[in-house]
Deep mutational scan, measured.
Amino acid sequence: WKITIYDQENFQGKRMEFTSSCPNVSERSFDNVRSLKVESGAWIGYEHTSFCGQQFILERGEYPRWDAWSGSNAYHIERLMSFRPICSA
């Protein structure tokens, strides 16, 4: 599993790669995730830290803005603060 997060939209700004769970992006000096690329595996992104709040399934691909992973939710969530890989047995 591999995911790359960015602190600006369209894959700009600070970037960081992960191959395992991140319970709080702010502990990695990110205020928020504004864009991301899922390089391999599937991940679950969460609205809040500690894997809480609205969940987003993140499959392999590029997500240049928050609405790319938020989709058409009843209330739009511009925040992604934690994530972890989906492990299959």
Score class of each variant (00 low, 15 high):
23 P>T: 09
20 S>R: 09
6 Y>D: 01
85 P>W: 03
51 F>D: 00
49 T>A: 15
5 I>E: 02
82 S>F: 00
19 T>H: 09
9 E>P: 10
63 Y>G: 01
73 N>K: 15
88 S>W: 04
29 S>C: 12
33 V>M: 05
83 F>N: 05
45 G>F: 15
48 H>W: 05
52 C>Y: 08
54 Q>P: 10
68 A>V: 08
59 E>V: 12
6 Y>V: 00
33 V>S: 00
22 C>G: 00
56 F>Q: 12
81 M>T: 05
46 Y>R: 02
2 K>I: 05
32 N>D: 09
68 A>Q: 08
57 I>V: 13
9 E>S: 05
54 Q>M: 14
45 G>P: 03
46 Y>F: 13
38 V>R: 02
32 N>E: 10
28 R>L: 10
42 A>M: 12
54 Q>L: 08
10 N>D: 06
64 P>S: 09
58 L>C: 03
14 K>E: 08
79 R>L: 05
25 V>G: 02
14 K>V: 05
23 P>F: 05
77 I>C: 13
58 L>D: 03
2 K>E: 06
41 G>E: 04
38 V>S: 02
17 E>I: 10
45 G>L: 09
52 C>I: 10
17 E>T: 12
86 I>G: 07
69 W>Q: 07
3 I>F: 04
6 Y>N: 00
80 L>C: 06
75 Y>D: 15
74 A>D: 14
48 H>G: 13
68 A>R: 08
18 F>Q: 03
86 I>L: 14
2 K>W: 03
61 G>H: 02
45 G>V: 07
10 N>Q: 09
49 T>P: 14
37 K>M: 07
32 N>K: 10
85 P>V: 06
9 E>A: 09
55 Q>V: 04
78 E>T: 13
5 I>G: 01
80 L>Q: 03
64 P>I: 00
81 M>F: 04
13 G>A: 00
62 E>G: 06
35 S>W: 01
1 W>F: 15
65 R>M: 06
20 S>H: 11
56 F>R: 09
22 C>I: 10
52 C>G: 14
48 H>D: 13
73 N>Y: 11
15 R>S: 14
81 M>P: 04
1 W>L: 10
55 Q>A: 13
38 V>Y: 05
16 M>R: 11
5 I>D: 01
13 G>E: 00
39 E>F: 08
74 A>F: 11
69 W>C: 07
38 V>H: 03
87 C>I: 11
31 D>K: 08
43 W>L: 02
60 R>V: 15
74 A>Q: 11
70 S>F: 05
23 P>E: 15
27 E>M: 07
33 V>Y: 02
61 G>S: 03
32 N>W: 09
25 V>F: 04
7 D>R: 03
67 D>M: 10
24 N>W: 02
11 F>T: 00
47 E>Q: 07
8 Q>F: 02
40 S>Q: 14
73 N>E: 14
51 F>C: 03
18 F>N: 02
25 V>E: 06
21 S>G: 10
82 S>E: 03
14 K>L: 07
47 E>M: 03
19 T>I: 07
81 M>R: 11
27 E>L: 06
89 A>T: 15
14 K>H: 09
23 P>V: 08
85 P>H: 04
56 F>Y: 09
46 Y>H: 02
63 Y>Q: 05
16 M>F: 06
62 E>S: 13
26 S>E: 09
42 A>S: 15
33 V>G: 01
30 F>L: 08
19 T>V: 06
24 N>I: 02
83 F>Q: 00
2 K>S: 05
83 F>W: 03
34 R>P: 00
79 R>K: 13
28 R>A: 12
15 R>N: 14
17 E>H: 09
81 M>I: 03
13 G>S: 01
79 R>Q: 09
45 G>I: 12
83 F>H: 02
58 L>V: 04
16 M>V: 11
61 G>F: 02
36 L>M: 07
77 I>F: 11
80 L>P: 05
84 R>W: 02
26 S>I: 13
58 L>W: 02
53 G>T: 03
19 T>S: 09
63 Y>V: 05
64 P>Q: 07
27 E>H: 08
6 Y>L: 00
51 F>G: 03
56 F>H: 05
56 F>C: 15
76 H>L: 08
5 I>A: 06
85 P>Q: 06
24 N>C: 04
74 A>G: 14
41 G>H: 03
82 S>C: 00
69 W>Y: 08
17 E>N: 06
25 V>P: 04
53 G>N: 02
50 S>P: 03
32 N>M: 11
61 G>W: 03
21 S>F: 05
27 E>K: 09
28 R>C: 12
41 G>Q: 03
50 S>V: 06
45 G>Y: 03
64 P>A: 11
50 S>Q: 12
5 I>L: 09
18 F>K: 02
69 W>L: 12
4 T>H: 14
54 Q>V: 12
14 K>A: 10
71 G>E: 15
8 Q>D: 09
11 F>A: 02
23 P>Q: 13
74 A>P: 15
78 E>M: 10
62 E>N: 08
53 G>D: 02
54 Q>F: 07
47 E>D: 09
87 C>A: 13
34 R>V: 04
81 M>K: 11
30 F>P: 01
42 A>N: 13
60 R>W: 05
27 E>Y: 06
37 K>V: 11
27 E>A: 10
22 C>T: 05
60 R>H: 13
15 R>P: 07
31 D>G: 11
5 I>V: 13
28 R>Y: 07
39 E>S: 11
32 N>Q: 12
46 Y>C: 04
9 E>Q: 09
11 F>K: 01
70 S>P: 06
53 G>Q: 00
73 N>H: 12
89 A>G: 15
78 E>S: 14
42 A>G: 08
4 T>M: 14
62 E>I: 10
80 L>G: 02
72 S>C: 13
3 I>S: 00
12 Q>I: 06
71 G>F: 09
49 T>V: 15
36 L>R: 00
11 F>M: 05
89 A>V: 09
16 M>S: 08
68 A>P: 04
68 A>I: 07
63 Y>A: 01
26 S>A: 13
76 H>T: 10
86 I>M: 15
58 L>K: 00
23 P>M: 09
66 W>A: 14
73 N>T: 10
27 E>V: 06
43 W>Y: 02
12 Q>A: 10
36 L>K: 03
27 E>Q: 14
62 E>A: 13
27 E>C: 08
41 G>R: 03
